[in-house]
């Protein structure tokens, strides 16, 4: 699934995304601690977060994340949008919570392959 398809399926608001919306999303990561996201997110993930400040863009660039989804109706700061445009990092927002965005992404099959692979047999 691409960033554009996720935007449409979840009804996300596109804060910045003139480019790179056709990138394939490999899964997702939820986190508000930047070091945690640096350590544990994977390339091509969408990053679901409440953080809106400019430093989220550098994390997304360094980890080659597909997009940032800001939740709970928050909006990125002005300098965040400016940096996102410079670095070409799509930023989307939603009024949903992180739990609901992640849940809907799973429902759409994003991250499902990994969940299946890691399922503990009962």
């Amino acid at each position: 699934m691409t960033v554009r398809e996720i935007k449409q399926q979840l009804g996300l608001f596109l804060c910045w995304g003139d480019e790179k919306l056709e990138h394939k999303v490999t899964g997702g990561y939820v986190g508000d601690l930047l070091s945690d996201v640096m350590a544990n997110s994977k390339a091509g993930n969408v990053w679901i977060t409440m953080q809106t400040h400019v430093n989220i863009v550098a994390v997304a660039v360094l980890k080659e994340l597909a997009a940032i989804i800001i939740v709970n109706g928050r909006h990125p700061a002005e300098e965040t949008l400016k940096k996102a445009a410079e670095e070409k990092v799509p930023i989307l927002s939603s009024t949903l919570s992180a739990f609901d965005v992640a849940g809907r992404l799973y429902f759409l099959g994003v991250g499902k392959a990994r969940a299946d692979a890691e399922r503990i047999p009962d």
Binding site: L33, L34, A39, T49
Partner: peptide, 15 residues
């Protein structure tokens, strides 16, 4: 509040 100060910086560097 900005998501820094998780106490993971130096351990992440070492790792």
């Amino acid at each position: 509040e900005l998501g820094f100060g998780a106490g993971m910086g130096l351990p992440n560097m070492k790792k």
